[in-house]
């Protein structure tokens, strides 16, 4: 966002690419091949605020379809969380909440999100955001959930690579 706001000149000197678009390009160009049998469990996808509503507000584009296109190539069984996309609930770890020290409030916020996660019966939550990964992983530990794991979207891609 800083680059967009203050460095339009720099953006004329070099190109930029988002994690989603780069992964999609690798797959479409045949530079990587994914094994869809790698994860024989149900997965769900969490829309981070910053790639959805906030991205829409700052850059005029929300990344909802891109990660889902990748999810389709990774998982036979993945389900939408409700609500999702622009109505999605924040994980509770955004905006620096992991670092403010207001732990009681952060955990209460996270429990609300976890209700939505648990309703999917998924064993794997896929996220493309470091804060969401930290918060949801922390909630899984906090709630002692043995059959649930959070994984980065690019981690799932890396683990499903056919080498």
């Amino acid at each position: 966002m800083g680059l967009e706001t203050w460095h339009a000149d720099a953006l004329e000197r070099f190109g930029t690419v988002t994690a989603f678009d780069l992964l999609i390009r690798y797959i479409q160009e045949g530079r990587i091949t994914l094994d869809r049998s790698r994860f024989p469990v149900r997965a769900t996808y969490h829309d981070p605020c910053n790639y959805g509503r906030r991205s829409e507000s700052f850059f005029g584009h929300a990344f909802y379809d891109e990660p889902r296109w990748i999810m389709d190539r990774l998982f036979d069984d993945w389900v939408e969380m409700q609500p999702s996309r622009n109505h999605q609930l924040c994980c509770g770890g955004g905006g620096g909440a992991l670092l403010t020290g207001y732990e009681e409030e952060r955990l209460a916020y996270g429990r609300r999100k976890m209700e939505r996660v648990l309703a999917t019966d998924a064993e794997l939550i896929v996220v493309p955001c470091h804060s969401c990964h930290g918060q949801l992983g922390g909630m899984i530990r906090e709630m002692g959930l043995k059959n649930l794991r959070v994984i980065y979207l690019w981690e799932a891609v890396a683990d499903a690579l056919v080498l």
Binding site: C90, G95, T100
Partner: peptide
Amino acid sequence: WICTMCGRCE
């Protein structure tokens, strides 16, 4: 600071 600036309100 407890708000995560998630943008659901706006």
